[in-house]
Amino acid sequence: MMNIHPTTAGMTLAGILFVLGLISILIRRNLIFMLLSVEIMLNAAGLAFIVASSHWAQPDGQVMFMFILAMAAAEVSVGLALILQLFHQLKTLDSDEASRMRG
């Protein structure tokens, strides 16, 4: 196979996944899809941490991944609750509808 350094390969994969998530969040209007896109991006960041951890032979990257995991779990639970409320209030999942606060 090609002689690519594993760190470079892993990091590039993380970059690709991150950018895909970013594209997705930019083009979607559906709130659940946007949440999914955030998950993709978080996962890509976690991948980058794992790759870095193995690159430097240090546990810190993996520790960071665990924190990302915890954060993702909390984010999803709160995010889903918010989406639920919005859906009840606005009867739609369109994120553009929730723009009345101009914030």
Binding site: L22, M34, S95, D96
Partner: peptide
């Protein structure tokens, strides 16, 4: 720019 449209904010971040 304070349109309230989430995607534009993300675009700004990008």
């Amino acid at each position: 720019t304070q349109s309230g449209l989430l995607r534009w904010y993300i675009m700004g971040v990008l």
